[in-house]
């Protein structure tokens, strides 16, 4: 009989000596479950994240911006695909994962439950939302599970391009008319706090963190990543000539970091629970696409089946 404790010990040793875990390797059930939860949540976020930006495709203010936005959202669909594939290496089907999203059992990043109401939001999403995501994703390039790590390496390259693209939209607005500058400031006012919330609860309140760090799924804590994001972003905000909406934001010489105000955790948990401004719309849009796509999937399957039968019949005749 295989001794589970010794398997677990060997597993942890591999992790500790930085050897990637691959799909066929033995892994603790809880490791597998944590990965499925996290990777699928990440995949769902890519797909739901297409919606707030997709909202501006038809209204993009120039053809160059329209093409860039389309390509960006298409990249996100591609990221969703890589991540669902990475998840499938753990023994789950994409269909089932999507069902979990639609039933509300699986979560996605809450940031996409906020509305994108002006063109500046497209820039702010690129700069702040993609910027915050990158902090997390760069860390995940070194995550212990091989397929996830490799998917993240690809994703990171594209994400940093998206972030620059978003920043460039804002930079253009910052050099524009008073109306454009006001549009820029307003978008940053609305997206700043939700972006900080993207890193999740404070470390002391984070349920999954300690074990994930031990397994090296995560390598930095929520609060460390959030601090890193704030430190990088403040300078970029100065170049844009905008004010970040936090009166407590200031450089702390002693810590060598920026101090910042307390996140409104009540808002955070409310949006997680489904009470954000767009939770219903986002889920409704995803479910509608799935429901309306069902007959298309059925047709493709029926056609493939007919083709298979025809082939068998032909080979029989021959």
């Amino acid at each position: 009989m295989v001794d589970i404790t010794s398997l677990e010990k060997k597993f942890q040793e591999r992790i500790d000596s930085e050897i990637k875990i691959e799909p066929k390797d033995w892994m603790p059930d809880a490791y597998r479950k944590t990965l499925i939860r996290q990777i699928s949540q990440h995949a769902h976020s890519e797909i739901v994240g297409m919606l707030p930006e997709g909202n501006w495709i038809t209204r993009a203010p120039s053809l160059r911006r329209k093409v860039a936005l389309l390509a960006k959202i298409q990249d996100e669909a591609g990221h969703g695909l890589y991540l669902y594939s990475a998840c499938e290496t753990l023994g789950v089907e994409r269909e089932d994962l999507i069902d979990q999203l639609h039933s509300g059992k699986a979560k996605y990043s809450s940031i996409f439950n906020y509305p994108s109401t002006t063109w500046a939001d497209i820039g702010a999403i690129g700069w702040l939302v993609d910027g915050a995501a990158i902090m997390n994703q760069v860390m995940l390039c070194r995550t212990s599970y091989g397929p996830y790590s490799r998917a993240m390496v690809r994703i990171c390259k594209e994400e940093s391009f998206h972030q620059r693209q978003g920043y460039e939209i804002l930079l253009t607005l910052s050099r524009g008319s008073e109306e454009q500058k006001a549009m820029l400031q307003d978008a940053v006012n609305r997206w700043w706090w939700p972006s900080l919330m993207m890193f999740g609860p404070n470390d002391k309140d984070s349920t999954h963190s300690a074990q994930s760090m031990k397994w090296k799924i995560k390598r930095k804590s929520n609060d460390e990543l959030r601090q890193q994001f704030v430190d990088i972003t403040v300078g970029q905000a100065k170049v844009l000539g905008i004010t970040l909406p936090d009166p407590d934001l200031k450089w702390n010489e002693e810590r060598g970091h920026y101090d910042f105000g307390e996140i409104d955790w009540e808002e955070f948990w409310n949006v997680v629970k489904g009470n954000g401004p767009c939770n219903r719309e986002r889920m409704a849009a995803r479910k509608k696409a799935a429901a309306e796509g069902q007959w298309v999937k059925d047709a493709a399957i029926a056609y493939a089946e007919k083709q298979r039968k025809r082939k068998t019949e032909t080979s029989r005749v021959a």
């Binding site: 797909i47 297409m50 919606l51 930006e53 997709g54 495709i57 389309l70 959202i73 298409q74 669909a77 591609g78 969703g80 695909l81 669902y84 849009a285 509608k288 696409a289 309306e292 796509g293 069902q294 298309v296 999937k297």
Partner: peptide, 11 residues
């Protein structure tokens, strides 16, 4: 974009 019947067709 974002509303295709399946991800592959959306792309």
């Amino acid at each position: 974009c974002g509303h295709g019947p399946v991800l592959e067709q959306d792309i």
